[in-house]
């Protein structure tokens, strides 16, 4: 490591979740190395929101920063969950895709550049509908190329969580880091209840929601790689450790045989206690790791 963080900053535990997207991104870098790209004063606002009477934000809810983590060149992209639920529109989507592509181009030139995505998002921004959906497809395509060169690390800290199309982006990441306050899933409880009925999913059942989508469960099933406290230093250390680990031998989203057999083995005639799946799934992941 070429640059150490200023440790006095962390004498007292600092909440990571309470930070906004810009602060979350900044704190991951070696002190004083980060620079924001296409920041608020560049005023890359959504062209679609104002025409629908919705106030835009100067960074469109997506912060891109470049700098060093553990002395290595890294780009961090953070979605701001407080703006439009962290949803992906044309601008925020393209910021994410372009940042990943620029990192990829540098890697191809021999300049190692890691990527970290901080995802707090409900997925597509419905005011930009088809451009948001197209953006997510492009983000996914860019992750697939970049992760051949360097680990693409996904952090879901909370409290929005990561849902909708962007849950697929998380699924493609090399490593997923979550807290107990974070959730990860394709469909949120409300949309399941509205589509398939309250008997399928009671969206007022908080315990059920956390039992299924919560960080602790996702980690225990082997669908996330680290479960950290809501502590900025722990988050920094988790990112540093995954950068040090490098590209995994096999990405989780390429483990088709393993997960297909998991699905085949399930009794689909009933709902499951999420805890049932922990023992079976995590055991296999642990076995894979030691092979």
């Amino acid at each position: 490591m070429s640059e150490q963080r200023n440790d006095t900053k962390f004498i007292n535990r600092q909440s990571f979740i309470e930070l906004n997207a810009r602060e979350r991104a900044e704190i991951l870098f070696d002190t004083g190395t980060s620079r924001e790209l296409a920041g608020p004063f560049d005023r890359m606002e959504s062209p679609w929101l104002a025409m629908q009477g919705v106030t835009p934000q100067a960074d469109d809810g997506c912060v891109v920063m470049k700098g060093k983590i553990s002395g290595q060149s890294t780009v961090v992209i953070a979605l701001e969950g407080a703006f439009q639920g962290g949803s992906l529109g044309e601008v925020s989507g393209e910021k994410l895709t372009a940042a990943l592509d620029l990192a990829c181009a540098d890697n191809e030139k021999g300049i190692r550049t890691n990527a970290v995505m901080l995802l707090e998002t409900g997925g597509v921004r419905l005011q930009e509908a088809n451009l948001g959906l197209a953006s997510i497809a492009e983000i996914m395509a860019s992750i697939l190329v970049l992760r051949r060169h360097v680990p693409v690390i996904c952090i879901i800290a909370g409290t929005v969580g990561c849902f909708g199309g962007m849950s697929l982006a998380a699924g493609l990441a090399s490593y997923v880091v979550m807290t107990r306050e974070a959730r990860l899933g394709m469909n949120g409880p409300e949309v399941i209840e509205q589509t398939s009925g309250v008997e399928e999913f009671d969206s007022s059942d908080r315990a059920l929601i956390w039992a299924i989508h919560g960080g602790e469960q996702r980690f225990a099933m082997g669908l996330a790689d680290a479960l950290v406290e809501d502590d900025a230093q722990q988050m920094v250390e988790a990112v540093q450790s995954f950068i040090a680990k490098g590209v995994p031998a096999v990405h989780r989203s390429s483990e088709i045989a393993l997960y297909r057999s998991h699905i085949a083995a399930l009794d689909a005639s009933r709902q499951w206690d999420p805890k049932e799946l922990r023992a079976i799934w995590k055991a296999d992941v642990a076995t894979e790791d030691t092979q």
Partner: peptide
């Protein structure tokens, strides 16, 4: 110096000062 604070979230606002 310029300054940027806040977020366009419910009950909040974003301020850009230059």
């Amino acid at each position: 110096k310029r300054a940027h604070v806040g977020v366009v979230g419910s009950g909040d606002l974003e301020v850009l000062l230059e």
